[in-house]
Protein backbone atom coordinates (compact mmCIF):
# COMPACT_ATOMS: atom_id res chain seq x y z
CA UNK A 1 0.00 0.00 0.00
CA UNK A 2 2.66 2.44 1.03
CA UNK A 3 4.83 1.48 -1.83
CA UNK A 4 2.01 1.97 -4.23
CA UNK A 5 1.37 5.41 -2.91
CA UNK A 6 4.99 6.29 -3.29
CA UNK A 7 4.98 5.12 -6.86
CA UNK A 8 1.95 7.14 -7.53
CA UNK A 9 3.39 10.30 -6.10
CA UNK A 10 6.44 9.87 -8.21
CA UNK A 11 4.32 9.56 -11.27
CA UNK A 12 2.50 12.76 -10.54
CA UNK A 13 5.74 14.62 -10.06
CA UNK A 14 7.01 13.45 -13.40
CA UNK A 15 3.71 14.23 -14.98
CA UNK A 16 3.69 17.74 -13.60
CA UNK A 17 7.13 18.30 -14.97
CA UNK A 18 5.98 17.28 -18.42
CA UNK A 19 2.81 19.27 -18.32
CA UNK A 20 4.80 22.38 -17.59
CA UNK A 21 5.95 22.49 -21.18
CA UNK A 22 2.80 21.69 -22.98
CA UNK A 23 4.03 22.30 -26.49
CA UNK A 24 6.72 19.69 -26.27
CA UNK A 25 6.05 16.47 -28.06
CA UNK A 26 5.40 13.38 -26.05
CA UNK A 27 8.56 11.90 -24.72
CA UNK A 28 9.29 8.35 -25.55
CA UNK A 29 7.06 6.30 -23.33
CA UNK A 30 8.64 5.83 -19.96
CA UNK A 31 7.50 2.89 -18.00
CA UNK A 32 6.14 3.41 -14.58
CA UNK A 33 8.96 1.50 -12.94
CA UNK A 34 11.72 3.63 -14.34
CA UNK A 35 10.08 6.79 -13.20
CA UNK A 36 9.51 5.58 -9.73
CA UNK A 37 13.00 4.29 -9.14
CA UNK A 38 14.54 7.54 -10.21
CA UNK A 39 12.19 10.04 -8.76
CA UNK A 40 10.39 8.65 -5.80
CA UNK A 41 13.29 8.62 -3.35
CA UNK A 42 14.11 12.27 -3.96
CA UNK A 43 11.15 14.00 -2.43
CA UNK A 44 7.45 13.58 -2.05
CA UNK A 45 5.38 15.81 -4.26
CA UNK A 46 4.11 17.77 -1.37
CA UNK A 47 4.73 17.84 2.35
CA UNK A 48 1.61 18.49 4.28
CA UNK A 49 1.95 21.29 6.75
CA UNK A 50 1.37 20.62 10.41
CA UNK A 51 -1.08 23.39 10.91
CA UNK A 52 -3.45 25.08 8.63
CA UNK A 53 -2.12 28.54 9.26
CA UNK A 54 0.38 29.78 8.49
CA UNK A 55 1.36 27.55 5.61
CA UNK A 56 4.82 27.73 4.27
CA UNK A 57 5.21 25.90 1.06
CA UNK A 58 8.42 23.96 1.08
CA UNK A 59 10.75 24.89 -1.68
CA UNK A 60 11.86 22.15 -4.02
CA UNK A 61 15.46 22.63 -3.02
CA UNK A 62 17.02 24.28 -0.01
CA UNK A 63 18.02 27.44 -1.76
CA UNK A 64 15.99 29.70 0.44
CA UNK A 65 14.87 31.96 -2.31
CA UNK A 66 11.91 34.12 -1.63
CA UNK A 67 8.91 31.99 -0.96
CA UNK A 68 6.12 33.47 -3.10
CA UNK A 69 3.78 35.54 -1.06
CA UNK A 70 0.47 34.08 -0.10
CA UNK A 71 -2.38 35.10 -2.41
CA UNK A 72 -5.11 37.37 -1.18
CA UNK A 73 -7.17 35.61 1.44
CA UNK A 74 -10.50 34.20 0.35
CA UNK A 75 -9.70 34.01 -3.36
CA UNK A 76 -9.60 30.91 -5.48
CA UNK A 77 -5.80 31.24 -5.63
CA UNK A 78 -5.78 31.36 -1.86
CA UNK A 79 -7.86 28.18 -1.76
CA UNK A 80 -5.33 26.38 -3.88
CA UNK A 81 -2.44 27.83 -1.92
CA UNK A 82 -3.88 26.83 1.43
CA UNK A 83 -4.99 23.37 0.38
CA UNK A 84 -1.78 22.74 -1.51
CA UNK A 85 -3.73 21.34 -4.47
CA UNK A 86 -7.00 22.05 -6.17
CA UNK A 87 -6.86 18.68 -7.85
CA UNK A 88 -6.74 15.18 -6.45
CA UNK A 89 -5.75 12.17 -8.51
CA UNK A 90 -7.05 8.64 -8.99
CA UNK A 91 -5.88 5.26 -10.20
CA UNK A 92 -7.05 3.75 -13.50
CA UNK A 93 -10.79 3.14 -13.38
CA UNK A 94 -10.74 3.91 -9.63
CA UNK A 95 -12.44 6.48 -7.52
CA UNK A 96 -11.11 5.66 -4.06
CA UNK A 97 -9.18 8.32 -2.16
CA UNK A 98 -5.55 7.76 -1.18
CA UNK A 99 -4.21 9.06 2.16
CA UNK A 100 -2.54 11.98 0.36
CA UNK A 101 -5.77 12.77 -1.37
CA UNK A 102 -7.59 12.78 1.93
CA UNK A 103 -5.04 15.20 3.36
CA UNK A 104 -5.57 17.58 0.49
CA UNK A 105 -9.32 17.31 0.80
CA UNK A 106 -9.19 17.90 4.55
CA UNK A 107 -7.38 21.14 3.89
CA UNK A 108 -9.89 22.05 1.19
CA UNK A 109 -12.67 21.42 3.70
CA UNK A 110 -10.86 23.51 6.30
CA UNK A 111 -10.73 26.42 3.89
CA UNK A 112 -14.40 26.02 3.05
CA UNK A 113 -15.24 26.11 6.73
CA UNK A 114 -13.31 29.30 7.12
CA UNK A 115 -14.83 30.97 4.09
CA UNK A 116 -18.34 29.86 4.71
CA UNK A 117 -19.97 31.93 1.99
CA UNK A 118 -17.99 30.15 -0.71
CA UNK A 119 -19.31 27.24 -2.67
CA UNK A 120 -17.41 24.45 -4.33
CA UNK A 121 -17.76 22.91 -7.78
CA UNK A 122 -16.03 19.56 -8.07
CA UNK A 123 -15.31 18.48 -11.66
CA UNK A 124 -14.52 14.82 -12.23
CA UNK A 125 -12.14 13.87 -15.02
CA UNK A 126 -10.93 10.66 -16.62
CA UNK A 127 -8.07 9.73 -18.87
CA UNK A 128 -8.60 9.00 -22.56
CA UNK A 129 -8.45 5.22 -22.26
CA UNK A 130 -12.16 4.75 -21.91
CA UNK A 131 -15.21 5.50 -23.98
CA UNK A 132 -16.91 8.84 -23.69
CA UNK A 133 -20.05 7.89 -21.80
CA UNK A 134 -18.42 5.47 -19.40
CA UNK A 135 -15.83 8.12 -18.60
CA UNK A 136 -18.55 10.68 -17.91
CA UNK A 137 -20.02 8.25 -15.39
CA UNK A 138 -16.57 7.58 -13.96
CA UNK A 139 -15.82 11.29 -13.69
CA UNK A 140 -19.11 11.75 -11.85
CA UNK A 141 -18.11 9.02 -9.42
CA UNK A 142 -14.78 10.69 -8.73
CA UNK A 143 -16.39 14.08 -8.22
CA UNK A 144 -18.87 12.53 -5.85
CA UNK A 145 -16.16 10.72 -3.89
CA UNK A 146 -14.52 14.09 -3.28
CA UNK A 147 -17.82 15.72 -2.37
CA UNK A 148 -18.72 12.93 0.04
CA UNK A 149 -15.38 13.24 1.80
CA UNK A 150 -15.60 16.99 2.15
CA UNK A 151 -19.18 16.72 3.38
CA UNK A 152 -17.95 14.24 5.96
CA UNK A 153 -15.57 16.96 7.17
CA UNK A 154 -18.56 19.03 8.12
CA UNK A 155 -19.31 21.05 4.99
CA UNK A 156 -22.98 21.35 4.06
CA UNK A 157 -23.75 19.23 1.00
CA UNK A 158 -25.70 22.11 -0.48
CA UNK A 159 -22.48 24.09 -0.87
CA UNK A 160 -20.92 21.54 -3.16
CA UNK A 161 -22.02 20.69 -6.67
CA UNK A 162 -20.45 18.05 -8.86
CA UNK A 163 -19.95 17.97 -12.59
CA UNK A 164 -18.28 15.43 -14.81
CA UNK A 165 -16.23 16.16 -17.88
CA UNK A 166 -15.32 12.56 -18.58
CA UNK A 167 -12.25 12.65 -20.81
CA UNK A 168 -13.11 16.02 -22.32
CA UNK A 169 -10.84 18.20 -20.17
CA UNK A 170 -7.39 16.64 -20.12
CA UNK A 171 -4.73 18.77 -18.51
CA UNK A 172 -2.03 16.85 -20.36
CA UNK A 173 -2.61 15.94 -24.00
CA UNK A 174 -0.05 13.15 -24.03
CA UNK A 175 -0.82 9.48 -24.49
CA UNK A 176 1.42 7.99 -21.85
CA UNK A 177 1.21 6.84 -18.25
CA UNK A 178 2.30 10.20 -16.84
CA UNK A 179 -0.31 12.13 -18.78
CA UNK A 180 -3.05 9.65 -17.99
CA UNK A 181 -2.22 9.80 -14.28
CA UNK A 182 -2.60 13.58 -14.39
CA UNK A 183 -5.85 13.42 -16.29
CA UNK A 184 -7.55 11.10 -13.80
CA UNK A 185 -8.52 13.75 -11.32
CA UNK A 186 -11.18 15.71 -9.57
CA UNK A 187 -10.77 19.44 -9.68
CA UNK A 188 -12.11 21.65 -6.93
CA UNK A 189 -13.12 25.13 -7.99
CA UNK A 190 -14.37 27.58 -5.37
CA UNK A 191 -16.84 30.27 -6.15
CA UNK A 192 -16.60 33.19 -3.82
CA UNK A 193 -19.31 35.83 -3.71
CA UNK A 194 -20.78 34.84 -7.02
CA UNK A 195 -17.49 34.98 -8.92
CA UNK A 196 -14.82 32.42 -9.09
Amino acid sequence: MNKKTLKYTGMVVIALAFSACATQPDPAPITQKQQVEKVAPLAPAYTPPKQIKPVVRQAEDNLAEAVPEAPKAGTKEHFKYMAGEDRVYFGYDRYDLTPQTRDVLRRQAQWLKEYSSSILVVGGNADERGTREYNLALGARRADAVKAFIVAQGIAPGRITTVSYGKERPIDGGSNEAAWALNRNAHSAVLVGGTS
Binding site: A140, R141, A143, D144
Partner: peptide, 9 residues
Protein backbone atom coordinates in the same frame (compact mmCIF):
# COMPACT_ATOMS: atom_id res chain seq x y z
CA UNK B 1 -30.46 8.10 -20.55
CA UNK B 2 -28.38 7.83 -17.40
CA UNK B 3 -28.64 10.06 -14.39
CA UNK B 4 -26.03 10.25 -11.66
CA UNK B 5 -27.22 10.53 -8.09
CA UNK B 6 -24.58 10.59 -5.37
CA UNK B 7 -22.00 9.35 -7.80
CA UNK B 8 -24.10 6.42 -8.90
CA UNK B 9 -25.32 6.40 -12.50
Amino acid sequence: FSMVKRGNS
